[in-house]
Design a protein around this nucleic acid. Sequence first.
DNA 1: TCCATAATTCCAGTATGGTCGAAATATTCG
DNA 2: CGAATATTTCGACCATACTGGAATTATGGA
Lengths: 122, 122
Amino acid sequence: MESKAAAASLSALGHEGRLTIFRLLVKAGPVGVAAGEIARRLDSLPNTLSANLNVLSHAGLITSRREGRSIIYSADFTAMTGLLGFLMEDCCNGSPEICAPLGGIVARAAACDGACLPNANA
Amino acid sequence: MESKAAAASLSALGHEGRLTIFRLLVKAGPVGVAAGEIARRLDSLPNTLSANLNVLSHAGLITSRREGRSIIYSADFTAMTGLLGFLMEDCCNGSPEICAPLGGIVARAAACDGACLPNANA
DNA sequence: TCCATAATTCCAGTATGGTCGAAATATTCG
DNA sequence: CGAATATTTCGACCATACTGGAATTATGGA
C-alpha cells in the first residue's frame, strides 16, 4: 500500500461516526449489514450515513452489494490488513523490539479462534 | 482506548504529510529526530511542519523533548500499539478467521528481530 | 549585550468537509 | 401501474483544516 492510499484510509477512519460504522461492519463480518440497519443501530440520519458510507467506500475500506431493496455493506478485510501492515512496516527495521506488544495483540486475537466468549478482554 | 481518542489519532494520521512524518519517526525509533532535520529530510516549510507536529502531538502519537537549540520528536509507541489494538479488537469476535493475515504481518515483524536486512519485504 | 540559529506562533486567504432538509432513484408488492 | 420502502443525490450553510508569509520566543556562542 502506498502512502497516499493509506492516508486516505486513515482520514476516512479519522471521524468518530465513520470509525463507529467501520467497527460495526468489522464486527458483523463478511455477512455485512444493510444501510438502514446501520442507521437504526447508530441512530443516524439516512443521508448523513450515506455520505459517510460513501467516504469509507471511496477509501476502499468497505464494499457494498444490493440485496432486494436493501444495500448491504461489509468491511473489506484485505484493505484493513493492508492498512495495518502499512503502519507496522517501518516499526521493524527501526526498532524491532518495539513490535513485541503487537505480537501480544495478535496472539490475543488468534487465541480467540473459537475459544473466547464475546466481550472477552483477557 | 476509546473511540474518540482513536478517531483523533486516525484523523491526525489521515494526512499524507503527517503520515510521512510519523513513519519517519517510527523508523527513527526512541532516539527521535530534531524538527529541523525532519524539515530538511521532507523538504517542508518550518511553520507547516510545526503545525503538523503539533497535531500529531495533541493526538498523543508523538512526544518531544528539548536538546540544546533543537527540539527532538519521537513516536510514542505505546499510543501506536494502543491504536492498532483498538482497530484489531473487534475483528476477533466478529470473524476470528479473518485475523489470520494479521498474525502473518506480525510474524514477519517478529522475524525481523535481528534477522532481516533493511528494505526486506519477504 | 549582540548576533545567529532553531523552532514556534500569529494571521490572513482559500479550500475542504460535515450536516441537514428536500427531492430523486431503485426495488418490491398489491 | 401505483403505493410503500430503502437509499442516494442535490444544494446550501457552517465549521474546520491547510498553506505560507511575517513576526516572535528560546537557546548558544562571541
